[in-house]
Design a protein around this nucleic acid. Sequence first.
DNA 1: TCAAAAGTGTTGTTATTACACCCATGT
DNA 2: ACATGGGTGTAATAACAACACTTTTGA
Lengths: 248, 248
Amino acid sequence: MHNETWRPPCVLLTVDLVILTLRSSALHVLLVERGIDPHKGELALPGGFISDTGEDIFDAACRELREEAGLDATSLHLEQLNTYGRPDRDPRGRIVSVAYLAIAPGLPEPEAGTDASAASWRPVEEFTSGHRKLAFDHREILDHGLERARTKIENTSLATAFCDTTFTITDLQRVYEAVWGFEIDPRNFYRKVQAISGFITPVDSDRRTTKGRPARLFQAGPEHLLRPPMLRPLPQPRPFSRPRSETS
Amino acid sequence: MHNETWRPPCVLLTVDLVILTLRSSALHVLLVERGIDPHKGELALPGGFISDTGEDIFDAACRELREEAGLDATSLHLEQLNTYGRPDRDPRGRIVSVAYLAIAPGLPEPEAGTDASAASWRPVEEFTSGHRKLAFDHREILDHGLERARTKIENTSLATAFCDTTFTITDLQRVYEAVWGFEIDPRNFYRKVQAISGFITPVDSDRRTTKGRPARLFQAGPEHLLRPPMLRPLPQPRPFSRPRSETS
DNA sequence: TCAAAAGTGTTGTTATTACACCCATGT
DNA sequence: ACATGGGTGTAATAACAACACTTTTGA
Protein backbone atom coordinates (compact mmCIF):
# COMPACT_ATOMS: atom_id res chain seq x y z
CA MET A 1 0.00 0.00 0.00
CA HIS A 2 2.59 2.58 1.09
CA ASN A 3 6.29 2.43 0.48
CA GLU A 4 8.58 2.39 3.47
CA THR A 5 9.59 6.03 3.26
CA TRP A 6 5.96 7.13 3.57
CA ARG A 7 5.12 8.93 6.77
CA PRO A 8 1.49 9.32 7.85
CA PRO A 9 0.19 12.89 7.98
CA CYS A 10 -0.66 14.44 11.28
CA VAL A 11 -3.63 16.60 12.16
CA LEU A 12 -4.39 19.15 14.84
CA LEU A 13 -6.78 17.85 17.44
CA THR A 14 -9.30 19.90 19.36
CA VAL A 15 -12.06 19.20 21.83
CA ASP A 16 -15.42 20.97 21.60
CA LEU A 17 -18.05 20.91 24.31
CA VAL A 18 -21.82 20.93 24.09
CA ILE A 19 -22.71 21.87 27.65
CA LEU A 20 -26.42 21.77 28.35
CA THR A 21 -28.36 22.91 31.37
CA LEU A 22 -31.82 24.05 32.38
CA ARG A 23 -32.41 27.68 33.25
CA SER A 24 -35.94 28.66 34.24
CA SER A 25 -37.37 25.57 32.54
CA ALA A 26 -35.66 26.25 29.20
CA LEU A 27 -32.79 24.33 27.71
CA HIS A 28 -29.60 26.38 27.48
CA VAL A 29 -26.18 25.76 25.97
CA LEU A 30 -22.93 27.38 27.02
CA LEU A 31 -21.33 29.39 24.21
CA VAL A 32 -18.35 31.68 23.93
CA GLU A 33 -17.87 34.71 21.73
CA ARG A 34 -14.72 34.13 19.71
CA GLY A 35 -11.97 36.66 20.38
CA ILE A 36 -9.55 35.64 17.65
CA ASP A 37 -9.76 35.61 13.96
CA PRO A 38 -11.31 32.55 12.43
CA HIS A 39 -14.95 33.54 12.92
CA LYS A 40 -13.95 36.35 15.32
CA GLY A 41 -16.95 37.77 17.13
CA GLU A 42 -19.21 34.86 16.33
CA LEU A 43 -20.61 32.46 18.88
CA ALA A 44 -18.92 29.09 19.22
CA LEU A 45 -18.88 26.05 21.43
CA PRO A 46 -16.25 26.17 24.17
CA GLY A 47 -13.23 24.05 23.37
CA GLY A 48 -9.61 24.14 22.44
CA PHE A 49 -6.54 22.30 21.32
CA ILE A 50 -5.44 19.21 23.09
CA SER A 51 -2.40 19.70 25.29
CA ASP A 52 0.93 18.54 23.92
CA THR A 53 1.91 16.61 27.02
CA GLY A 54 0.29 13.36 26.01
CA GLU A 55 -3.08 14.30 27.42
CA ASP A 56 -5.95 11.84 27.05
CA ILE A 57 -8.86 13.20 25.03
CA PHE A 58 -11.31 12.78 27.89
CA ASP A 59 -8.93 14.63 30.21
CA ALA A 60 -8.70 17.40 27.64
CA ALA A 61 -12.49 17.67 27.69
CA CYS A 62 -12.41 17.91 31.49
CA ARG A 63 -9.74 20.60 31.32
CA GLU A 64 -11.69 22.69 28.81
CA LEU A 65 -14.77 22.26 30.94
CA ARG A 66 -12.86 23.78 33.84
CA GLU A 67 -11.00 26.46 31.91
CA GLU A 68 -13.72 27.67 29.59
CA ALA A 69 -16.83 26.98 31.59
CA GLY A 70 -15.63 27.00 35.16
CA LEU A 71 -17.30 23.66 35.77
CA ASP A 72 -15.98 20.64 37.65
CA ALA A 73 -16.00 17.54 35.50
CA THR A 74 -16.23 15.18 38.47
CA SER A 75 -19.65 16.49 39.41
CA LEU A 76 -21.40 16.32 36.07
CA HIS A 77 -22.16 14.03 33.19
CA LEU A 78 -19.58 14.03 30.37
CA GLU A 79 -19.67 11.69 27.40
CA GLN A 80 -18.08 11.62 24.00
CA LEU A 81 -20.11 12.70 21.01
CA ASN A 82 -18.93 12.35 17.42
CA THR A 83 -15.64 13.40 15.88
CA TYR A 84 -15.68 15.99 13.12
CA GLY A 85 -12.96 16.06 10.51
CA ARG A 86 -14.15 17.54 7.25
CA PRO A 87 -11.03 18.95 5.60
CA ASP A 88 -12.59 22.39 5.13
CA ARG A 89 -14.18 22.76 8.53
CA ASP A 90 -11.48 25.17 9.77
CA PRO A 91 -9.73 27.70 7.51
CA ARG A 92 -6.51 27.39 9.53
CA GLY A 93 -5.90 23.88 8.23
CA ARG A 94 -6.65 20.28 8.99
CA ILE A 95 -8.23 20.43 12.41
CA VAL A 96 -10.14 17.45 13.73
CA SER A 97 -12.45 17.97 16.66
CA VAL A 98 -13.71 15.44 19.16
CA ALA A 99 -17.02 16.69 20.53
CA TYR A 100 -18.23 16.00 24.04
CA LEU A 101 -21.65 16.36 25.58
CA ALA A 102 -21.84 17.67 29.13
CA ILE A 103 -24.98 17.94 31.25
CA ALA A 104 -25.01 20.26 34.23
CA PRO A 105 -27.59 20.86 36.96
CA GLY A 106 -29.53 24.04 36.54
CA LEU A 107 -28.42 26.40 39.23
CA PRO A 108 -24.63 26.99 38.81
CA GLU A 109 -24.13 30.57 37.66
CA PRO A 110 -22.81 30.85 34.12
CA GLU A 111 -19.43 32.37 34.94
CA ALA A 112 -17.72 34.94 37.10
CA GLY A 113 -14.86 37.29 36.40
CA THR A 114 -12.75 34.18 35.93
CA ASP A 115 -11.09 32.46 33.02
CA ALA A 116 -14.52 31.68 31.66
CA SER A 117 -15.59 35.30 31.29
CA ALA A 118 -16.40 35.02 27.61
CA ALA A 119 -18.87 32.18 28.19
CA SER A 120 -22.59 32.61 28.64
CA TRP A 121 -25.71 30.48 28.62
CA ARG A 122 -27.94 30.82 25.57
CA PRO A 123 -31.38 29.31 25.01
CA VAL A 124 -30.98 26.51 22.47
CA GLU A 125 -34.22 27.62 20.89
CA GLU A 126 -32.34 30.57 19.35
CA PHE A 127 -30.32 28.13 17.26
CA THR A 128 -32.70 25.28 16.53
CA SER A 129 -35.16 27.75 15.07
CA GLY A 130 -32.59 28.54 12.44
CA HIS A 131 -32.19 32.29 12.75
CA ARG A 132 -28.88 32.36 14.62
CA LYS A 133 -25.56 31.08 13.39
CA LEU A 134 -22.60 29.44 15.06
CA ALA A 135 -18.93 29.42 14.07
CA PHE A 136 -17.37 26.55 12.11
CA ASP A 137 -19.60 23.45 11.99
CA HIS A 138 -20.69 24.01 15.58
CA ARG A 139 -24.33 24.19 14.61
CA GLU A 140 -24.08 20.61 13.37
CA ILE A 141 -22.29 19.54 16.55
CA LEU A 142 -24.92 21.22 18.68
CA ASP A 143 -27.67 19.44 16.75
CA HIS A 144 -25.98 16.11 17.32
CA GLY A 145 -25.66 16.85 21.02
CA LEU A 146 -29.31 17.78 21.28
CA GLU A 147 -30.40 14.67 19.41
CA ARG A 148 -28.19 12.55 21.67
CA ALA A 149 -29.80 14.11 24.73
CA ARG A 150 -33.31 13.63 23.36
CA THR A 151 -32.85 9.93 22.73
CA LYS A 152 -30.71 9.18 25.77
CA ILE A 153 -33.23 10.50 28.27
CA GLU A 154 -35.65 8.00 26.78
CA ASN A 155 -33.59 4.95 27.64
CA THR A 156 -31.22 6.03 30.38
CA SER A 157 -31.35 8.03 33.58
CA LEU A 158 -29.50 10.91 31.89
CA ALA A 159 -32.30 13.33 32.74
CA THR A 160 -31.27 13.25 36.41
CA ALA A 161 -27.93 14.82 35.38
CA PHE A 162 -29.87 18.04 34.72
CA CYS A 163 -31.12 18.02 38.34
CA ASP A 164 -29.50 18.73 41.68
CA THR A 165 -28.80 15.81 43.97
CA THR A 166 -32.36 16.03 45.26
CA PHE A 167 -35.24 17.06 43.08
CA THR A 168 -38.98 16.81 42.78
CA ILE A 169 -40.78 14.81 40.15
CA THR A 170 -41.94 18.04 38.59
CA ASP A 171 -38.31 19.18 38.31
CA LEU A 172 -37.63 16.01 36.37
CA GLN A 173 -40.66 16.60 34.21
CA ARG A 174 -39.34 20.05 33.29
CA VAL A 175 -36.18 18.37 32.03
CA TYR A 176 -38.10 16.06 29.72
CA GLU A 177 -40.28 18.88 28.50
CA ALA A 178 -37.34 21.19 27.81
CA VAL A 179 -35.26 18.56 26.02
CA TRP A 180 -38.14 17.13 24.03
CA GLY A 181 -39.82 20.44 23.38
CA PHE A 182 -43.36 19.60 24.30
CA GLU A 183 -45.48 19.24 27.40
CA ILE A 184 -46.28 16.09 29.29
CA ASP A 185 -49.29 15.16 31.42
CA PRO A 186 -47.97 15.64 34.97
CA ARG A 187 -50.21 12.95 36.47
CA ASN A 188 -49.14 10.18 34.15
CA PHE A 189 -45.52 11.34 34.33
CA TYR A 190 -45.66 11.26 38.10
CA ARG A 191 -46.50 7.59 38.24
CA LYS A 192 -44.59 6.42 35.20
CA VAL A 193 -41.29 7.75 36.43
CA GLN A 194 -41.75 6.11 39.81
CA ALA A 195 -42.70 2.78 38.25
CA ILE A 196 -39.35 2.50 36.49
CA SER A 197 -37.26 0.44 38.86
CA GLY A 198 -34.05 2.10 40.00
CA PHE A 199 -34.65 5.41 38.20
CA ILE A 200 -35.33 7.61 41.20
CA THR A 201 -35.38 6.83 44.90
CA PRO A 202 -37.29 8.88 47.46
CA VAL A 203 -35.46 10.96 50.06
CA ASP A 204 -37.42 10.03 53.14
CA SER A 205 -39.74 12.56 54.73
CA ASP A 206 -38.13 15.53 53.10
CA ARG A 207 -40.16 17.96 51.05
CA ARG A 208 -39.67 21.08 49.04
CA THR A 209 -42.24 23.79 49.34
CA THR A 210 -42.80 26.63 46.89
CA LYS A 211 -46.37 27.18 45.92
CA GLY A 212 -49.14 24.67 46.41
CA ARG A 213 -48.72 21.35 48.17
CA PRO A 214 -45.10 20.51 49.12
CA ALA A 215 -43.54 17.93 46.89
CA ARG A 216 -41.62 14.78 47.78
CA LEU A 217 -37.90 14.88 47.11
CA PHE A 218 -36.05 12.20 45.19
CA GLN A 219 -32.51 11.44 44.17
CA ALA A 220 -31.05 9.54 41.24
CA GLY A 221 -31.45 5.80 41.62
CA PRO A 222 -28.86 3.10 40.97
CA GLU A 223 -30.10 2.02 37.55
CA HIS A 224 -28.69 3.55 34.39
CA LEU A 225 -30.88 1.76 31.82
CA LEU A 226 -34.58 2.55 32.08
CA ARG A 227 -36.89 -0.40 31.68
CA PRO A 228 -39.54 0.25 30.62
CA PRO A 229 -38.10 3.27 28.82
CA MET A 230 -39.55 6.79 28.77
CA LEU A 231 -40.82 6.70 25.19
CA ARG A 232 -41.80 10.00 23.65
CA PRO A 233 -44.42 10.17 20.93
CA LEU A 234 -42.78 10.82 17.59
CA PRO A 235 -43.81 13.93 15.63
CA GLN A 236 -46.03 11.66 13.57
CA PRO A 237 -49.17 11.18 15.68
CA ARG A 238 -49.04 14.51 17.51
CA PRO A 239 -46.89 17.16 15.85
CA PHE A 240 -47.76 20.00 18.18
CA SER A 241 -47.85 20.32 21.94
CA ARG A 242 -51.19 20.46 23.59
CA PRO A 243 -52.06 23.22 26.04
CA ARG A 244 -50.94 22.45 29.55
CA SER A 245 -54.37 22.91 31.14
CA GLU A 246 -57.27 20.86 29.89
CA THR A 247 -59.35 21.48 33.06
CA SER A 248 -62.70 21.71 31.31
CA MET B 1 -3.91 30.90 28.02
CA HIS B 2 -1.15 30.31 25.46
CA ASN B 3 1.47 32.77 24.31
CA GLU B 4 1.55 33.66 20.67
CA THR B 5 4.56 31.53 19.81
CA TRP B 6 2.79 28.39 21.00
CA ARG B 7 1.89 25.93 18.28
CA PRO B 8 -0.67 23.23 18.93
CA PRO B 9 0.66 19.68 18.81
CA CYS B 10 -0.44 17.39 16.05
CA VAL B 11 -1.39 13.73 16.28
CA LEU B 12 -1.51 10.84 13.85
CA LEU B 13 -5.05 9.89 12.91
CA THR B 14 -6.23 6.42 12.04
CA VAL B 15 -9.56 4.81 11.28
CA ASP B 16 -10.49 1.41 12.72
CA LEU B 17 -13.45 -0.65 11.58
CA VAL B 18 -15.73 -2.96 13.51
CA ILE B 19 -17.35 -4.88 10.65
CA LEU B 20 -20.08 -7.23 11.76
CA THR B 21 -21.99 -9.85 9.84
CA LEU B 22 -23.94 -13.05 10.35
CA ARG B 23 -22.46 -16.34 9.22
CA SER B 24 -24.54 -19.46 9.82
CA SER B 25 -26.58 -17.66 12.47
CA ALA B 26 -23.55 -16.56 14.48
CA LEU B 27 -22.24 -13.03 14.80
CA HIS B 28 -18.82 -12.58 13.19
CA VAL B 29 -16.35 -9.71 13.05
CA LEU B 30 -13.77 -9.11 10.35
CA LEU B 31 -10.20 -9.17 11.71
CA VAL B 32 -6.76 -9.01 10.19
CA GLU B 33 -3.58 -10.65 11.37
CA ARG B 34 -1.01 -7.93 11.76
CA GLY B 35 2.01 -8.28 9.48
CA ILE B 36 4.17 -5.49 10.92
CA ASP B 37 5.70 -4.94 14.22
CA PRO B 38 3.52 -3.30 16.82
CA HIS B 39 1.58 -6.40 17.90
CA LYS B 40 2.88 -8.34 14.87
CA GLY B 41 1.03 -11.62 14.41
CA GLU B 42 -1.86 -10.63 16.65
CA LEU B 43 -5.41 -10.11 15.50
CA ALA B 44 -6.60 -6.55 14.99
CA LEU B 45 -9.46 -4.58 13.57
CA PRO B 46 -8.97 -3.53 9.96
CA GLY B 47 -8.01 0.10 9.64
CA GLY B 48 -5.24 2.45 8.75
CA PHE B 49 -3.91 5.96 8.64
CA ILE B 50 -5.95 8.70 7.12
CA SER B 51 -4.73 9.81 3.73
CA ASP B 52 -2.69 13.02 3.59
CA THR B 53 -4.71 14.56 0.80
CA GLY B 54 -7.29 16.22 2.99
CA GLU B 55 -9.49 13.15 3.14
CA ASP B 56 -12.67 13.30 5.19
CA ILE B 57 -12.74 10.82 8.07
CA PHE B 58 -15.87 9.12 6.78
CA ASP B 59 -14.28 8.77 3.34
CA ALA B 60 -11.23 7.25 4.97
CA ALA B 61 -13.49 4.68 6.63
CA CYS B 62 -15.03 3.87 3.24
CA ARG B 63 -11.59 3.51 1.71
CA GLU B 64 -10.36 1.16 4.42
CA LEU B 65 -13.55 -0.82 4.06
CA ARG B 66 -12.74 -1.30 0.40
CA GLU B 67 -9.02 -1.85 0.76
CA GLU B 68 -8.91 -4.06 3.81
CA ALA B 69 -12.23 -5.83 3.63
CA GLY B 70 -13.11 -5.72 -0.05
CA LEU B 71 -16.54 -4.30 0.79
CA ASP B 72 -18.42 -1.51 -0.93
CA ALA B 73 -19.38 1.23 1.47
CA THR B 74 -22.35 2.36 -0.59
CA SER B 75 -24.13 -0.93 -0.08
CA LEU B 76 -23.83 -1.30 3.67
CA HIS B 77 -24.41 0.49 6.91
CA LEU B 78 -21.50 2.59 8.19
CA GLU B 79 -21.61 4.83 11.23
CA GLN B 80 -19.11 6.47 13.48
CA LEU B 81 -18.35 4.93 16.83
CA ASN B 82 -16.15 6.56 19.46
CA THR B 83 -12.70 8.06 19.11
CA TYR B 84 -9.84 6.54 21.08
CA GLY B 85 -6.89 8.63 22.09
CA ARG B 86 -5.22 7.33 25.24
CA PRO B 87 -1.61 8.48 24.97
CA ASP B 88 -0.23 4.96 25.51
CA ARG B 89 -2.57 3.08 23.21
CA ASP B 90 0.06 2.70 20.48
CA PRO B 91 3.78 2.26 21.20
CA ARG B 92 4.69 4.15 18.01
CA GLY B 93 3.51 7.43 19.46
CA ARG B 94 0.44 9.59 19.78
CA ILE B 95 -2.04 7.89 17.50
CA VAL B 96 -5.71 8.77 17.75
CA SER B 97 -8.20 6.40 16.17
CA VAL B 98 -11.72 7.13 15.02
CA ALA B 99 -13.67 3.87 15.13
CA TYR B 100 -16.50 3.04 12.74
CA LEU B 101 -19.15 0.37 12.91
CA ALA B 102 -20.07 -1.39 9.67
CA ILE B 103 -22.86 -3.91 9.24
CA ALA B 104 -22.79 -6.24 6.25
CA PRO B 105 -25.32 -8.78 4.96
CA GLY B 106 -24.40 -12.34 5.70
CA LEU B 107 -23.47 -13.93 2.45
CA PRO B 108 -20.51 -11.98 0.95
CA GLU B 109 -17.44 -14.20 1.09
CA PRO B 110 -14.81 -12.96 3.54
CA GLU B 111 -12.07 -12.17 1.00
CA ALA B 112 -10.35 -13.47 -2.10
CA GLY B 113 -6.73 -13.35 -3.20
CA THR B 114 -7.10 -9.57 -3.25
CA ASP B 115 -5.81 -6.70 -1.15
CA ALA B 116 -7.88 -8.00 1.71
CA SER B 117 -6.13 -11.35 1.92
CA ALA B 118 -5.15 -10.98 5.54
CA ALA B 119 -8.75 -10.46 6.64
CA SER B 120 -11.05 -13.18 7.89
CA TRP B 121 -14.36 -13.47 9.69
CA ARG B 122 -14.13 -14.59 13.33
CA PRO B 123 -17.00 -15.46 15.64
CA VAL B 124 -17.33 -12.65 18.16
CA GLU B 125 -17.96 -15.23 20.83
CA GLU B 126 -14.23 -16.04 20.80
CA PHE B 127 -13.52 -12.57 22.11
CA THR B 128 -16.46 -11.74 24.33
CA SER B 129 -15.82 -14.91 26.30
CA GLY B 130 -12.48 -13.46 27.25
CA HIS B 131 -10.05 -16.13 26.17
CA ARG B 132 -8.75 -14.46 23.00
CA LYS B 133 -6.88 -11.18 22.77
CA LEU B 134 -6.79 -8.38 20.24
CA ALA B 135 -4.03 -5.92 19.42
CA PHE B 136 -3.90 -2.40 20.91
CA ASP B 137 -7.19 -1.40 22.58
CA HIS B 138 -9.19 -3.12 19.86
CA ARG B 139 -10.95 -5.36 22.33
CA GLU B 140 -12.44 -2.25 23.93
CA ILE B 141 -13.42 -0.88 20.52
CA LEU B 142 -15.05 -4.17 19.59
CA ASP B 143 -17.01 -4.18 22.84
CA HIS B 144 -18.26 -0.67 22.12
CA GLY B 145 -19.30 -1.72 18.64
CA LEU B 146 -21.16 -4.73 19.94
CA GLU B 147 -22.92 -2.69 22.60
CA ARG B 148 -23.89 -0.10 19.99
CA ALA B 149 -25.33 -2.84 17.78
CA ARG B 150 -27.21 -4.40 20.68
CA THR B 151 -28.94 -1.19 21.66
CA LYS B 152 -29.45 0.18 18.15
CA ILE B 153 -31.36 -2.84 16.89
CA GLU B 154 -33.78 -2.14 19.74
CA ASN B 155 -34.77 1.31 18.56
CA THR B 156 -33.84 1.46 14.90
CA SER B 157 -34.14 -0.72 11.82
CA LEU B 158 -30.40 -1.47 11.95
CA ALA B 159 -31.07 -5.21 12.07
CA THR B 160 -32.14 -5.16 8.42
CA ALA B 161 -28.58 -4.11 7.51
CA PHE B 162 -27.52 -7.65 8.43
CA CYS B 163 -29.95 -9.05 5.86
CA ASP B 164 -30.02 -9.18 2.09
CA THR B 165 -32.44 -6.92 0.26
CA THR B 166 -35.16 -9.53 0.74
CA PHE B 167 -35.34 -11.74 3.79
CA THR B 168 -37.74 -13.81 5.81
CA ILE B 169 -38.91 -12.91 9.27
CA THR B 170 -36.93 -15.84 10.60
CA ASP B 171 -33.79 -14.41 8.98
CA LEU B 172 -34.44 -11.21 10.89
CA GLN B 173 -35.02 -13.18 14.07
CA ARG B 174 -31.60 -14.83 13.67
CA VAL B 175 -30.07 -11.35 13.62
CA TYR B 176 -31.67 -10.37 16.90
CA GLU B 177 -30.75 -13.68 18.49
CA ALA B 178 -27.13 -13.48 17.34
CA VAL B 179 -26.62 -9.88 18.40
CA TRP B 180 -28.43 -10.21 21.72
CA GLY B 181 -27.13 -13.67 22.47
CA PHE B 182 -30.35 -15.39 23.43
CA GLU B 183 -33.33 -16.98 21.77
CA ILE B 184 -36.68 -15.40 21.04
CA ASP B 185 -40.13 -16.94 20.70
CA PRO B 186 -40.60 -17.11 16.91
CA ARG B 187 -44.39 -16.72 17.04
CA ASN B 188 -44.39 -13.53 19.07
CA PHE B 189 -41.44 -12.19 17.11
CA TYR B 190 -43.30 -12.87 13.87
CA ARG B 191 -46.16 -10.58 14.76
CA LYS B 192 -44.29 -7.98 16.77
CA VAL B 193 -41.93 -7.17 13.96
CA GLN B 194 -44.79 -6.78 11.51
CA ALA B 195 -46.76 -4.58 13.88
CA ILE B 196 -43.99 -1.96 13.93
CA SER B 197 -45.03 0.49 11.25
CA GLY B 198 -42.47 0.99 8.49
CA PHE B 199 -39.97 -1.56 9.78
CA ILE B 200 -40.40 -4.22 7.10
CA THR B 201 -42.64 -4.31 4.04
CA PRO B 202 -43.74 -7.53 2.33
CA VAL B 203 -42.50 -8.42 -1.14
CA ASP B 204 -45.76 -9.50 -2.71
CA SER B 205 -46.39 -13.14 -3.50
CA ASP B 206 -42.76 -14.13 -3.34
CA ARG B 207 -41.59 -16.87 -1.06
CA ARG B 208 -38.42 -18.60 -0.09
CA THR B 209 -38.55 -22.33 0.41
CA THR B 210 -36.02 -24.40 2.30
CA LYS B 211 -37.52 -26.86 4.68
CA GLY B 212 -41.10 -26.76 5.94
CA ARG B 213 -43.62 -24.25 4.75
CA PRO B 214 -42.27 -21.55 2.38
CA ALA B 215 -41.79 -18.22 4.12
CA ARG B 216 -42.95 -14.79 3.01
CA LEU B 217 -40.24 -12.43 1.88
CA PHE B 218 -39.84 -8.89 3.15
CA GLN B 219 -37.59 -5.92 2.55
CA ALA B 220 -36.51 -3.06 4.75
CA GLY B 221 -39.25 -0.50 5.25
CA PRO B 222 -39.00 3.28 5.08
CA GLU B 223 -38.88 3.94 8.81
CA HIS B 224 -35.60 4.20 10.67
CA LEU B 225 -36.92 4.65 14.20
CA LEU B 226 -38.90 1.74 15.55
CA ARG B 227 -42.04 2.64 17.45
CA PRO B 228 -42.83 0.66 19.48
CA PRO B 229 -39.21 -0.44 19.89
CA MET B 230 -37.95 -4.01 20.00
CA LEU B 231 -37.15 -4.10 23.71
CA ARG B 232 -35.04 -6.96 24.93
CA PRO B 233 -35.38 -8.24 28.47
CA LEU B 234 -32.41 -7.15 30.52
CA PRO B 235 -30.24 -9.82 32.19
CA GLN B 236 -32.16 -9.06 35.38
CA PRO B 237 -35.43 -10.99 35.02
CA ARG B 238 -34.10 -13.80 32.81
CA PRO B 239 -30.34 -14.22 32.90
CA PHE B 240 -30.20 -17.38 30.79
CA SER B 241 -31.72 -18.32 27.47
CA ARG B 242 -34.59 -20.73 27.47
CA PRO B 243 -34.58 -23.84 25.28
CA ARG B 244 -35.90 -23.17 21.81
CA SER B 245 -38.55 -25.92 21.91
CA GLU B 246 -41.11 -25.90 24.65
CA THR B 247 -43.54 -28.14 22.70
CA SER B 248 -44.83 -30.03 25.69
C1' DT C 1 -61.45 30.37 51.28
C1' DC C 2 -59.11 30.24 47.16
C1' DA C 3 -55.39 29.36 43.90
C1' DA C 4 -51.85 26.30 42.85
C1' DA C 5 -49.32 22.45 42.73
C1' DA C 6 -49.06 17.43 44.49
C1' DG C 7 -50.83 13.17 44.34
C1' DT C 8 -54.69 9.23 43.59
C1' DG C 9 -58.49 6.61 40.94
C1' DT C 10 -60.49 4.90 36.95
C1' DT C 11 -61.32 3.47 32.35
C1' DG C 12 -60.31 2.16 27.74
C1' DT C 13 -56.62 0.90 24.62
C1' DT C 14 -52.46 -1.00 23.16
C1' DA C 15 -48.26 -3.96 23.87
C1' DT C 16 -46.29 -8.17 25.68
C1' DT C 17 -45.94 -12.82 26.98
C1' DA C 18 -46.79 -17.70 26.99
C1' DC C 19 -48.51 -20.88 24.99
C1' DA C 20 -51.89 -24.27 21.88
C1' DC C 21 -52.77 -25.04 17.47
C1' DC C 22 -53.20 -25.08 12.31
C1' DC C 23 -50.80 -24.67 7.47
C1' DA C 24 -47.84 -25.83 3.52
C1' DT C 25 -44.13 -27.86 1.77
C1' DG C 26 -40.09 -31.68 0.87
C1' DT C 27 -39.08 -36.37 1.48
C1' DA D 1 -47.62 -39.64 6.52
C1' DC D 2 -44.60 -37.13 8.86
C1' DA D 3 -41.05 -33.95 10.03
C1' DT D 4 -40.09 -29.13 9.69
C1' DG D 5 -40.46 -24.69 9.84
C1' DG D 6 -44.33 -20.86 8.71
C1' DG D 7 -48.12 -18.65 10.50
C1' DT D 8 -52.76 -17.83 13.50
C1' DG D 9 -55.65 -17.74 18.00
C1' DT D 10 -56.12 -16.57 22.51
C1' DA D 11 -56.00 -15.34 27.25
C1' DA D 12 -53.58 -13.16 31.04
C1' DT D 13 -50.76 -9.43 32.19
C1' DA D 14 -48.36 -5.06 31.76
C1' DA D 15 -47.93 -0.46 29.99
C1' DC D 16 -50.12 3.79 28.41
C1' DA D 17 -53.10 7.84 27.70
C1' DA D 18 -56.80 10.65 29.07
C1' DC D 19 -58.94 12.88 32.44
C1' DA D 20 -61.93 13.36 37.09
C1' DC D 21 -60.90 14.04 41.52
C1' DT D 22 -58.76 14.66 46.28
C1' DT D 23 -54.98 16.53 49.21
C1' DT D 24 -51.92 19.96 51.17
C1' DT D 25 -49.86 23.91 51.37
C1' DG D 26 -49.25 29.58 50.99
C1' DA D 27 -51.54 33.79 50.54
